[in-house]
Amino acid sequence: MTSCHIAEEHIQKVAIFGGTHGNELTGVFLVKHWLENGAEIQRTGLEVKPFITNPRAVKKCTRYIDCDLNRIFDLENLGKKMSEDLPYEVRRAQEINHLFGPKDSEDSYDIIFDLHNTTSNMGCTLILEDSRNNFLIQMFHYIKTSLAPLPCYVYLIEHPSLKYATTRSIAKYPVGIEVGPQPQGVLRADILDQMRKMIKHALDFIHHFNEGKEFPPCAIEVYKIIEKVDYPRDENGEIAAIIHPNLQDQDWKPLHPGDPMFLTLDGKTIPLGGDCTVYPVFVNEAAYYEKKEAFAKTTKLTLNAKSIRCCLH
């Protein structure tokens, strides 16, 4: 018999989150649709729960009410004593943790798909938090293969000092899905179709896995975050240069030392320094102006996964 890495157990509980950011409308629209008619997301033997994560922000069509829901799922915020004085999103995070967690427990949901849009030209993107997770690498390989020839990129946010504390991190297997470009507060049919297909293929993978299909060893190309880059700023902290036209919409493309990065209003080009080629992502993302992030630098690498098969009882 072929030796293989056996994944822990079959997958039982899956959640699909929309509206973690209330103005990213593809996930909101799909989740609302699936709450009314969820036939397309159901798979035999699998509990799939669509869920609106930040209903107040969705109602106002804004990213958040008090603070970013997708950055506060750490033990400090989840452990705060519940009171009306807490920011709305912290209270909501505790409610979500109660419903789908608790985080880092045996009772937490197996998989959470968190649906997002970006204003950046990132196409279909899967966000991975753990480079050693054979199950998710296999799932992402399946999704990428199923979507081809449509490109699907994998963004690895594993980093020693950049801690995200994402909404989906309460699950055993957290999956971020990011599709763009799409303006905030807008629905685009092409973007919706791409996100819908990503979810379909992900659920198909889980179904095949649960039925005992063995997935042979595989490898995927990923883009691992190195650092986030702020806009150049003046002495008052105001933005002093904008994304250069040569960099705009060039997510995932190589940016070499000396290539144009920013452009000042008086026409001066600010190039990339250093001696390493990087791959920019979230270029000129609207939501990241407040976070002082013009783009993120990534490096390209390959992740390998062992063969996996479900432990059938």
Rank of each mutant, 00 (worst) to 15 (best):
V48M: 05
H313V: 12
D107Q: 06
K49Q: 06
R91S: 14
D190M: 04
T299H: 08
Y109S: 04
D74P: 15
I143C: 01
C311M: 09
V48Y: 01
G18F: 04
K268D: 09
H244N: 01
I52A: 03
P280D: 01
C311H: 11
E221W: 01
I96L: 11
Y223E: 00
D204I: 00
E89C: 05
C218E: 02
D104M: 11
H5C: 10
E129S: 10
V229R: 03
G237Q: 09
E227Q: 07
I143P: 00
I206T: 07
H207N: 14
P151E: 13
Q12P: 05
L272N: 12
S108L: 08
I137F: 01
Y279V: 04
D130A: 04
G123Q: 06
K306M: 06
I177Y: 00
V281Y: 03
K291T: 08
P181N: 02
Q250C: 07
L86F: 13
R91M: 11
P183M: 04
D68E: 12
M122T: 14
D251L: 01
N54M: 04
L272K: 03
T118C: 06
K291C: 10
G38I: 12
M122Q: 03
D110F: 00
H244C: 02
I52E: 04
I191S: 04
V283H: 02
V229C: 07
F29A: 08
E89D: 07
P50D: 01
G45F: 04
K297R: 07
A305Y: 02
T269Y: 05
P254T: 05
T302L: 13
D266V: 04
L75V: 08
S131P: 13
L263G: 02
R92I: 14
M195Q: 13
A294E: 02
P217W: 04
E9C: 07
Y288L: 10
T302A: 06
D249K: 00
P245K: 04
C310W: 10
H256T: 15
R132H: 13
L156V: 12
E293M: 13
F215Q: 00
A165L: 10
T264V: 03
I111V: 10
K268E: 13
L115C: 14
S307A: 14
A202W: 03
G123N: 05
V179A: 14
Y155L: 08
P149A: 04
P151M: 06
P280F: 02
